[in-house]
Amino acid sequence: MIHCGIDVGSRSIKLVFVEEAATGLAVRARHILFPGELDLADAATQAYTDGLSATGIDAAQVATVMATGAFRKLVDCADDDVTEVSSAARGAAFVCPVARTVIEVGAEEVRVVKNDAAGHALDFSANDKCASGAGSFAESMARALQLSLADFGAAAMRSTTVIPMNARCTVFAESEVVSLIHAATPVEDIARSVIDALAGRVAAMARRIGGDGATDAVLIGGMVNNPAFVRALRESPGVGCLHLPEFPEYVGALGAALIAAERNRSHEHA
């Protein structure tokens, strides 16, 4: 029996299919779509259809579709939905069973979740209306430096100078970046400064939820692919041992698929 988790975020739609195997639930396939339009309901349907086609799974084989993500309520093909907090907690426990703190940096929201061994969320924190610390902050800063996101992280890794950035707000940070450009500061150092500031904000949230770093943490979401961010987060006080999973962008969708399977099982037993 196959279950699908579909994570509809503001930048991308991720799908994970899991199936019952002899050893328990296992990932069967993954799929991602970057919607080019604002109609995310249509995009989610398209992503599901594409996902089935790309992975060779027949729709009839899928017992449950569970939506998650900021736009989870828009997914017509979903049987049910679950919040990003629960799906992150469940997915993270699957990919990194030792971690009790989940750090997720999404495009618009950064959230930290404390979970238990079974993947149940116990506590969480997320940025409020301020985008600072979220992925869109990194995008905005990369744009100011006229770098792609990939080059932005790579540039920061080449920096040998630490420049503390005072601003926490995206708007003020951008103006600080402009000042550094005017001061002929090397791009590498500016990139590092921005990423260090971003990591500092995420680490503060992690400390608030995860405690003093005594527990292992797992980082999920696209920022795992930014080596400078990972380095800065690891060097931040109180973060503890930071694990990086394979396929970090898919952990939310994976969590939704696993919850779908569990709910399906409990319905069968009910």
Partner: peptide, 12 residues
């Protein structure tokens, strides 16, 4: 966003 956060809390 507040309703979304309430959803998460209710799940917890």
């Amino acid at each position: 966003r507040t309703k979304n956060r309430i959803d998460s809390f209710m799940e917890i």
